[in-house]
Computed example of a mutant assay.
Amino acid sequence: MPRIEITSDTLTEALARISEALSDTAPLMQDIGEYMVKSTNDNFAAGSDPDGKPWAPRTQATLDAYAARKDKPGPRPLIGPTKSLSGTISYEAGADDVTWGSNMIYAAVQQFGAEAGAFGARMGVNKKGRRFFMPIPWGNIPARRFLGVGKEDQAALIEIVEEYLEGAAAD
């Protein structure tokens, strides 16, 4: 088997720095987290999934519900009057991983969709004394992926990793 022996102190030191940088990639994970939060916010601005596919439009029933509450919907699906979902995108980086998303209780339903009644129903008596039964959710909700790594993201993430390694080698 061929053997290569490195005798250059400069190269040996650069490889040692790269090895050290790879032993704790938390700074890299932070860079990736920041990028993915920005990318996800761009998805909200465009009203599309990570690959650029437009989200399903709001249904007339949803628009009617906004009108009944006297709320004005945002310009695109997933952007309501409070902008709660789009305003809570954050990340958490560890030594060798990163997660990002929203802490809103309904975020997963928006991401993956849900059939009417998928989470049971709410029953009760309204203010007029009438009994009601309302499935949760009350209508079908199409998946509107706002999280994920699209093709453009993949290229950007490779660049982030390359810059991280180049920076480690050059230090």
Rank of each mutant, 00 (worst) to 15 (best):
T82P: 07
K127W: 03
I89T: 08
A61P: 10
P75D: 13
L85P: 00
L85Y: 00
W55N: 02
T12Y: 11
W138D: 05
K128L: 14
T99E: 15
V109A: 04
E5N: 11
K70A: 14
I79T: 05
M36A: 05
W100K: 03
G148L: 06
A65K: 08
P73K: 00
A68M: 06
I105E: 15
Q30P: 02
G47M: 06
G94L: 09
E34Q: 14
E115P: 09
K83Y: 11
N41G: 10
D64M: 08
L165F: 07
V125E: 13
R3I: 15
F112Y: 02
Q111L: 01
S84C: 04
A121R: 12
A21Y: 07
V161H: 03
K72P: 05
G120Q: 04
K128G: 12
G124A: 07
D71G: 08
I32V: 11
G101V: 03
W100L: 07
R17I: 03
M134V: 15
F133V: 12
R58Q: 09
S19G: 13
T7M: 07
V109K: 04
D51H: 08
G150P: 10
Q154W: 11
Q110L: 02
M123E: 15
Q110F: 00
I141Y: 06
L165S: 05
Y164L: 08
F119S: 01
D49Y: 04
I4Q: 12
R3L: 15
T88S: 15
A14S: 07
N126E: 07
Q154Y: 13
G94H: 04
Q30I: 13
D71I: 10
R3T: 13
A65S: 12
D171H: 12
Y91T: 11
E20Q: 12
D64A: 10
T12N: 07
M123P: 05
A56H: 12
D153H: 00
P2H: 11
A107G: 02
A61I: 03
S23K: 07
D51Y: 11
I79W: 00
N103R: 09
D97C: 08
R145V: 01
G74Q: 08
G74S: 05
A46R: 10
D97F: 13
L147H: 01
I6V: 15
D153Y: 02
L157E: 08
D97G: 09
E162R: 04
I32T: 02
M123H: 14
S39T: 08
A143Y: 00
Q110V: 00
L165D: 03
T10M: 11
